[in-house]
């Protein structure tokens, strides 16, 4: 059984951690950020998540999504580049990035996680 990660999927920022020897350790992302922004952007056919997405938000406002957690549970969809995304799909992209960062840190695949219930 691999490590189980703990994810705080926040409205503005998110955080991922793991228990090491009984102590929780926050996992930094690829840029060294411990609480990266919960922002997703689509640019030049690429998907950007986290700090990099926030840095280019002003240049790409119609294709950058922030605070999507506020819409969780509603029927609101985000329309980008001819495609509709539900709040759950956008949140899944954030979770996927957090999982990738955790796998890079731990050096092993992660298949289980505990995610906080959105406030």
């Amino acid at each position: 059984m691999g490590k189980i990660i703990g994810i705080d999927l926040g409205t503005t920022n998110s955080c991922v951690s793991v228990l090491e020897g009984g102590e929780p350790v926050v996992i930094p992302n690829s840029e060294g950020a411990r609480t990266p922004p919960s922002v997703v952007a689509f640019k030049d056919g690429e998907r950007l998540v986290g700090t990099i997405a926030k840095r280019q938000a002003i240049t790409n406002p119609t294709r950058t999504v922030a605070s999507i957690k506020r819409d969780m549970g509603s029927n609101r969809k985000v329309h980008i580049d001819g495609k509709d995304y539900t709040p759950q799909e956008i949140s899944a992209m954030i979770l996927q990035k957090l999982k990738q960062d955790a796998e890079a840190y731990l050096g092993e695949k992660v298949t289980q996680a505990v995610i906080n219930v959105p406030a």
Binding site: K43, L48, A53, Q56, T59
Partner: peptide, 19 residues
């Protein structure tokens, strides 16, 4: 602008300049 290196905090219309 390159989001890997720069952080855009303001944008402004500029004639004759590429987006």
């Amino acid at each position: 602008f390159d989001p890997n290196l720069h952080n855009a905090v303001l944008s402004e219309a500029a004639d004759g300049v590429e987006s």
